[in-house]
Amino acid sequence: MSIFYPLQLLVDWLTYSVFRIAPQTLLADAVNFFVYDTLKIFILLTVIIFVVSIIRSFLPPEKTRKLLSGKSKYTGNVIASVLGIFTPFCSCSAIPLFLGFVQAGVPLGTTFSFLVASPMINEVALVLLLGLFGWKIALIYIVSGLVIAILSGIVIGKLNPESLVEAFVFQNSLNTNTVLPQMSWIERFAYAKDYTLDILKKIWPYIIIGVGVGAWIHGYVPTDFLARFAGSSKWYGVPLAVLIGIPLYSNAAGVIPLVSALTEKGVAMGTTLAFMMSVTALSLPEFMILKKVMKTKLILLFAAIVSTGIIFTGLLFNLLLK
């Protein structure tokens, strides 16, 4: 029995007894789906973001840097990718983060592993995958995300990217003995509460819209309708999904519920995974910001390597999950 069984009972009661919609109709189906998915996602979001924020309060990027400096190449890539999951990342911190790593002597390849993993594997994406696709797909997403981050970093490191970074980046070297303001447990909880509310405030409209459109598709679009366009037999589905995903960064919260409904109607799972990875990992605004510290060629290289990794993963899963 799923832990959400009581929630399903509540939603059934709401749909059939409170809203008085006749069961077994398209409308009942869509309403039931909408209310259930929305509630489930908000419950998961609240719990998981709160827990991740508490962990985060122990792992500020300054500490991450300390853990990364002096690590050998490959170990560094692995650790950077794993730490990327928990380290808070917003595009406003992309530059200080990049400079801070590089000026403390963290290799560029390792820094890139972090820059890929941190936005791609974030708690919002994780919650939505968990809630809408189940833990197996969520796990596949995390593991393949980590692999892409590790490999992208290693490949970029091999290409001697130093010449493609703006010269001023290397002109400073830093003391890394930072004394961060100490946090008490009360402050950690307050931080986690604020952070959770902040994220919820930012994304709730997207979720409602995403789930709403998803519910409509769920109820009214015939199953397998989309298989003709985006089923696993169509090779171009995955690259196309990645391309569409790049400018959609800020709407990840609404995109995933929508995509979940599309998957139900025949879009291949690998295509869906690739799309979500592209939405979270490849972000146009972040690329614009990074232009301040690196040459366009390096950004394009970065985007190309990560895209290739995502496309490969998508195609692989389309083969495996058929």
Partner: peptide, 14 residues
């Protein structure tokens, strides 16, 4: 000036 954030030993903004 972002370098000033870095000189404090920090990497997050703001």
């Amino acid at each position: 000036d972002i370098q000033q954030i870095l000189n404090m030993g920090l990497m997050s903004s703001p």
